[in-house]
Design a protein around this nucleic acid. Structure first.
Lengths: 144, 144
DNA sequence: CTTGACCTAGGATCTAAGTCTAAGGTTTAT
DNA sequence: ATAAACCTTAGACTTAGATCCTAGGTCAAG
């Protein structure tokens, strides 16, 4: 059993974040001590880690709540319902992947075109690209 | 010279967003009319487009402010300074991409392993996977 | 038996990036 | 000359996701 501070420390988050997750129906401690202290189990910790991983890839807490809630309703849901939810999340993930890939491509192009040297940035291709009306690095000339 | 509404419309953003950018030291109109109306020049419009493009590549407004400060003071900054900003952002984006790809794989595997039928989800492979501490589908047995 | 670290609840505050409202002044078209 | 469309400011509100504050209760160590 972890007390709130122990679990928070173990997962490198704030105690208040755990209280916040509880208030927002994401993760409640499995029990309380005599004096009302929250007591989290190993299982609770695993759920928290799932939450943190999901958050790390861009799921909102609302989406995570939905993912987690499937489990609670198991018996009341058909497999099909669960699958729909997962497939919806999969589309979400793929949409996010597409956007990030776009960012990556643009940033890479900017980075690759820049000499990165100690020269003055007066002719920096990155700045030029951001100034131009294309968002693409068209001119790959360097500063030399 | 553009009035606020004209520039906003031309760049497809809200008038309030321009006031917000001004308050947050991203873009101030070059002048004001007799009656106090903001007047933006062609150059101002270019800076705005710079901001919007940088936003489109995933930079936060704080990061854009930094980019702009280099932009207006090019001669005093090295190319390396600019490149660091881009490369930091790039690593950030790539870290997220990696995590997201991991999630995509997991969700795909979950979806594929699920029969998607009208059976109760009590033995749904998806849920079983979410319960495990790996987020991977280990047991590919179905509900039947 | 008290000090310090930890915990409680409830509500206030913060950040990002806007968006909206109120109460009024200006410009333009008819 | 007056309505419609535009502009001004200050400040409140929004959403998501926390984080902090107040005022007090609990627990282990010296």
């Amino acid at each position: 059993m972890y007390r709130i501070g122990e679990l928070a420390k173990a997962c490198d988050i704030n105690n208040d974040t755990l209280r916040f997750y509880e208030k927002n129906a994401l993760l409640s401690p499995s029990s309380r001590s005599e004096s009302g202290y929250r007591l989290y189990t190993e299982k609770d910790k695993e759920i928290l880690q799932f939450i943190l991983r999901a958050k790390g890839v861009g799921f909102t807490l609302a989406e995570i709540r939905e993912l987690l809630s499937i489990e609670v309703n198991k018996a009341d849901n058909a497999c099909a319902d669960v699958k729909v939810l997962v497939d919806t999340k999969l589309s979400d993930v793929e949409r996010k992947l597409a956007e990030l890939t776009r960012f990556q491509t643009s940033l890479k192009r900017l980075s690759d075109a820049c000499c990165g040297g100690e020269e003055s940035a007066e002719h920096c291709t990155i700045l030029e690209a951001l100034e131009s009306n294309t968002n693409n690095v068209r001119h790959e000339h360097s500063h030399s």
